[in-house]
Design a protein around this nucleic acid. Structure first.
Length: 325
RNA sequence: GCACAGGUGGGUGAGUGGUUAAAGCCAACAGACUGUAAAUCUGUCCCUCCUAGCGAGGUACGAAGGUUCGAAUCCUUCCCUGUGCA
């Protein structure tokens, strides 16, 4: 018995399984299968699914599915509010601790790359968003020309300005906000404080990577189903209750449904635009996840038995991995 | 059959004699992204070659001819498409 073999399971951090992949790749199905097999609890990592009343267009797990195993961080934000990556990370971390206390396997599931990174790697401890400041910046940007924000940031934090494209307003605004609110350069904040990665878990990332053509076809079908199941009606209700301000109304599917409601698109056009938007989103997600470290890629859909078996195998290996070195 | 309108790169659609391999938009592909992220933004995008460049050559605006130093752009014929009249 060498020293390496004296490590016992009890001394190891518990496992955290992460199921990632593009939209419509079958993350929900896979996570359910895994949760049932390993006494798991599912923790959402999908920004849209956190909002209440956004149901059809976010492809949340059904109530039947949610009865099978515990689900967390779904329907926990009012459509009138908006969640942010930082807030998400705080809530998710405390949820992971709870699951750990119960001795269950936490299964993090979702497609929001930034939220996943915020949770796993942590954000730098910058200031929270300031609505008033943002409003002022946006107004000045419109009156003083499209290069205005970039010039401001260049003066405040040259290194940050060089990394953010002059056309990327949301990122410019956040960087300016950080500099002004903290009275420091964002670049310095990053360097001083760094990120605060998640501690206390061994992380196993399982990535779904289905054939792209097949994925696109599945996305088309699912978007059509969303329309058939009442996405338009859901959007109408949300518009009446919350107006255009509800942040997820600007997102996939809802945006196109709203355009139909306002008479800007025909139903057919809205559907096609929604399908297109979902396909484009899937592509962006794949770009993001490709960069994610240590992903064990599964080449297929999450509802495929073969893929589920493979995923189960990977988790079993991880659970007993300590004894093999 | 006659009269108009029109046929442009994967799609749409500008361009009416030369800085046009051909605007813009979309798709596609690649990429960035540390607090609205289902958001936002960037690059490539006819083919071949290389010393990889506002580089060289080839092919291209329905087809074939013609005018011209030069044509997607003008002329002729032909083939398609739409609309109207017969």
């Amino acid at each position: 018995m060498g020293p390496a073999l004296t490590v016992t399971a009890a001394q190891l951090d518990p496992l955290l399984a992460v199921v990632l992949g593009p939209t419509a790749s079958g993350k929900t199905a896979l996570s359910l299968a895994l949760a049932e097999r390993f006494a798991g609890e599912i923790v959402n990592c999908d920004s849209g699914a956190m909002y209440r009343e956004f149901d059809i267009g976010t492809a949340k797990p059904t109530t039947a599915e949610r009865d099978q195993v515990p689900h967390h961080l779904f329907d926990c934000v009012s459509p009138a509010d908006h969640i942010t990556a930082g807030e998400y990370a705080r809530r998710a971390r405390s949820m992971l601790e709870e699951v750990k206390t119960r001795g269950h396997l936490p299964i993090l599931v979702g497609g929001t790359g930034l939220y996943l990174r915020a949770l796993l790697e942590g954000l730098f401890p910058g200031p929270q968003r300031s609505e008033e400041l943002r409003q002022r910046l946006r107004e000045r940007a419109t009156s003083r020309g499209p290069k205005y924000l970039h010039r401001i940031l260049f003066r405040l934090d040259r290194a940050a300005a060089e990394k953010i494209h002059a056309n990327d307003f949301p990122k410019l605004i956040r960087a300016i906000e950080v500099c002004l609110a903290s009275r420091q350069r964002m670049t310095d904040l990053w360097q001083q404080r760094g990120r605060d990665p998640l501690q206390g878990f061994r992380i196993l990332r399982l990535g779904l990577d289905p054939d792209r053509q097949a994925l696109y076809e599945r996305i088309n079908r699912r978007a059509q189903q969303m329309f058939e199941e009442g996405l338009i009606e859901e959007t109408k209700t949300l518009l009446e209750k919350y107006g255009n301000a509800a942040s997820p109304l600007a997102s996939l599917g809802y945006k196109q449904a709203a355009q139909f409601i306002r008479g800007e698109l025909t139903l057919e056009q809205a559907l096609q635009a929604a399908q297109q938007a979902h396909r484009n989103y899937a592509k962006r997600q794949m770009t993001w996840f490709r960069r994610e470290p240590e992903v064990q890629w599964l080449r297929g859909f999450g509802d495929d038995n073969r893929i589920q078996t493979e995923a189960v195998g990977r988790i079993e290996t991880s659970l007993s991995g300590a004894f093999r070195g």
